Computed example of a mutant assay.
Amino acid sequence: MASSRVKKSTIVRAKFVRTGFGLLERVAPALGGRLALRIWCTPRHARPSAAPQPGVRHLVPLHGSTVLAETWGSGGPVVYLVHGWGGHRNQLGRFVAPLVAAGYQVVAFDALSHGESGPGTLGRRATLPEFADALTAVVAEFGPAHGIVAHSMGATATALAVLDGLSATRLAFIAPMADPMAQTHLFARFLGFGDRVHRAFIARLEKVAGRAMSSFDIPSRATGQTLPPLLVVHDERDREVGHVNGEALASAWPDAKLVSTNGLGHHRILTDADVLHEVVTFVTAPTPAVPC
Rank of each mutant, 00 (worst) to 15 (best):
R26G: 01
P52V: 09
P29D: 11
A28P: 08
W40C: 05
K15V: 09
I39P: 04
F21C: 02
V56L: 15
A46D: 11
H63Q: 14
P54H: 06
A28M: 05
G55P: 03
L35A: 08
W40F: 15
F16T: 13
R13E: 15
V27L: 11
R34M: 02
G22N: 04
G20R: 05
A46K: 06
I39G: 04
V17T: 04
H45T: 02
F16C: 04
A46I: 07
V56I: 10
L37F: 06
P54V: 03
G64Y: 05
R26W: 10
G32P: 10
E70G: 13
L23R: 06
V27P: 02
V27A: 02
G22D: 07
L37I: 00
A46V: 01
L62F: 11
L62D: 05
V60M: 10
K15W: 13
V60K: 07
A51F: 15
P52L: 12
P48D: 10
V67D: 12
L31N: 00
A36S: 12
A36D: 01
G22V: 06
G73L: 04
R26I: 00
S65P: 04
P52N: 11
G22A: 14
W40N: 03
L59C: 02
A14F: 00
R13D: 11
A51H: 08
L31I: 13
R18K: 15
T42V: 03
E70M: 12
S65L: 08
L23I: 15
V67R: 06
V27S: 01
L24N: 05
L24R: 00
G20M: 12
R47D: 07
G33C: 06
G55T: 09
Q53H: 04
V17K: 09
T71L: 07
L24W: 04
R18D: 01
V17E: 14
A51Q: 09
